[in-house]
């Protein structure tokens, strides 16, 4: 099969388009989350997504309609994590731990109660981007535009917040609002990424491209650009390779992202040695 033939399939075009949209969002958000040491919020919200998918399947919903359950549940959970961390004298890690374990427990419980949708649930655990429908692609496109517009609007505020929260506050930046916004945008992105790489691997898509960019970039803007580039190479490359070699797409994408991270890390080490000599 030639590359041209590969791209002529409708399902492959949809997968690549959706993957590109989700990859860009994860890459940009990932830079802020990794630098703010909030990477695990992606993992926690992914576990909540698992519970929300189980809930949607339990309610008899399928395809894009499942987002009607997942989106509000995960959004509420993201705000719940912030509230717990702020009000219940807990660290952010403990708040994430509590909310995510509730999500997984809910998912397991509903999976047992609603026997018969085990295979569907499994596809959400590990992703099935090649099976993305037209309706799901449209929803992904809408959410992509929303999240990217908000990131564009608050980009400089988010950079200032990430650099130093107190200095940001003294610049008149609404720190509490921005923290909530970042959590909400992460929630939307995690729900989208569930179809691409699956609940188990979402946090890797948030962390790996950003971490690879941090190895080699010289400046914040360049970090964001490189993170997007690395993410797109991982997603597009992962989808194509997984199709050609008949491998699971989510795992292939993440392993490719890890290879890129290793390459960036080695590049940085070589640069350090070169600068010393």
């Amino acid at each position: 099969m030639t590359i041209f033939e590969l791209f002529s399939y409708g399902f492959m075009q949809r997968a690549l388009l959706a993957g590109t949209l989700i990859g860009v969002l994860c890459a940009v958000l990932g830079v802020f989350l990794v630098l703010r040491r909030l990477s695990l919020i992606g993992d926690g919200l992914a576990h909540i997504t698992f519970g929300s998918v189980a809930l949607a399947l339990f309610a008899g919903l399928q395809g894009a309609a499942m987002l009607l359950v997942s989106l509000p549940v995960v959004l509420l959970a993201s705000l719940g994590i912030l509230k717990l961390a702020g009000k219940a004298r807990l660290g952010g890690d403990a708040a994430i731990g509590i909310v995510s374990s509730v999500g997984v427990s809910l998912g397991v419980l509903l999976a047992v109660l609603g026997r018969g949708y085990g295979v569907d649930l499994f596809s959400y655990l590990f992703g099935s981007i090649l099976a993305i429908s037209q309706a799901e692609l449209l929803v992904a496109g809408g959410l992509f535009v929303t999240v990217l517009a908000l990131l564009w609007l608050y980009y400089n505020d988010l950079v200032a917040l990430t650099f130093n929260e107190e200095l940001a506050a003294v610049s008149g930046i609404k720190v509490r609002f921005l923290n909530g916004l970042l959590a909400a945008l992460t929630a939307l992105t995690v729900v989208l990424a569930m179809k691409l790489v699956g609940v188990m691997l979402i946090s890797a898509l948030l962390i790996l491209p950003a971490s690879a960019a941090l190895q080699v970039a010289r400046g914040f803007r360049m970090t964001v650009i490189l993170s997007v580039l690395f993410s797109l190479v991982s997603v597009v490359g992962g989808i194509v390779v997984s199709f050609l070699l008949n491998l699971p797409s989510g795992a292939t994408i993440i392993l490719l992202a890890f290879v890129i991270f290793c390459g960036a890390y080695l590049f940085r080490q070589l640069q350090t040695v070169k600068n010393k000599s």
């Binding site: 630098l35 400089n156 505020d157 941090l214 914040f220």
Partner: peptide, 27 residues
């Protein structure tokens, strides 16, 4: 304080942040 030593901003980018106060979105 807790500045991340790996924070990827250049000196120019950090000083620029001092101009955000008083600007309207998207700043």
């Amino acid at each position: 304080g807790p500045l991340n030593p790996a924070f990827p901003a250049t000196v120019f980018e950090v000083v620029q942040l001092g101009l955000l106060a008083g600007k309207a979105l998207p700043k």
